[in-house]
Simulated scan of single mutants.
Amino acid sequence: MPLYEHVFLARQDVTAQQVEELNAQYKTIIEGLGGQVLKNEYWGVKTLNYRIKKNRKAHFTLLNVDAPPAALAEVERQQGLSEDVLRFMTVRVEEHEEGPSAMMRKADRDDRGDRGDRGDRGDRGDRPRRDRDDRPPRRDREEASEGDAA
């Protein structure tokens, strides 16, 4: 059977327990149609880049699924009818990632520490500093009006 990654966004005002109930409901649909949910990751409430149906935040959930296309079509149909689901996306993949997804590994990326000097900037002393006296003189308004009148 084909492998899929399915992500859906639930409204921010539903509780995490209600999101888990939605997951259980979708898992039941998939298993009833001959598939299986291999991994279920709840990514938490995250801020959206733009409003979706007047919501600024949403609960994000990832499902790794091994199921026939009809099973996912039914899940997507149910999510389209649900008022609690803002958006969903299903992507067919060749194989599922082992271990946590990229969103769950994000905290590990943030702990990379000091990257050190890049080495492309020279010492600030190698460039001569330009003083105010080096600038060309500024024309006064009186000179400008005299030059324009002539």
Rank of each mutant, 00 (worst) to 15 (best):
R121T: 07
R129D: 09
L86I: 05
L72N: 08
D140Y: 03
A70V: 13
V85C: 04
R130V: 15
V75C: 06
E83N: 15
G122W: 05
K106Y: 10
E95C: 01
K57Y: 06
P100A: 15
E94M: 04
D66E: 14
M89A: 09
H59W: 08
Q78H: 11
K106E: 14
D117N: 11
L63F: 12
L86G: 09
T90Q: 11
F88L: 09
M104L: 15
K106A: 14
N64I: 00
L63H: 10
L81I: 08
R87G: 06
D111F: 01
G125V: 04
P136Y: 09
D117V: 08
H96V: 06
Q79M: 15
L62H: 10
R105W: 03
A107P: 00
R138S: 10
V85G: 01
D114A: 13
D133N: 12
Q78V: 13
A58P: 08
P128Y: 06
D126H: 06
P69R: 01
G125W: 03
A102V: 15
E95P: 00
R118Y: 02
A58E: 04
R124M: 02
D117R: 11
A70Y: 00
V75N: 03
M103S: 09
F60G: 02
P136M: 10
P100C: 07
M89K: 09
L81P: 02
R92K: 15
D120S: 10
D110G: 15
R92Y: 00
S82W: 07
F60E: 00
D66R: 13
F88P: 00
S101P: 08
A58H: 04
G122M: 01
A70K: 13
A70C: 02
A67L: 02
R105L: 15
D131L: 12
E97H: 11
G125K: 13
V75E: 02
E95N: 14
R129G: 10
E97W: 01
A107V: 13
R135A: 11
E74Q: 15
L86D: 09
V65G: 04
V93F: 08
D133I: 03
R115F: 02
L62Y: 09
A102H: 08
H59C: 04
F60C: 01
D133C: 00
M104D: 07
E97T: 11
R87E: 03
N64F: 01
D134Y: 04
H59V: 07
E76N: 13
R124F: 06
Q79D: 03
R109E: 14
P128K: 10
T61G: 02
R87K: 13
D140C: 02
D108C: 01
D110N: 14
R139I: 08
V75P: 03
D133K: 11
R127K: 12
T61S: 13
R130S: 05
R109H: 12
N64T: 07
G125A: 13
D114T: 07
V65I: 15
T90R: 10
E97Q: 13
R87A: 05
M103V: 15
D108R: 12
R132F: 14
R105Q: 15
D84M: 08
A73S: 14
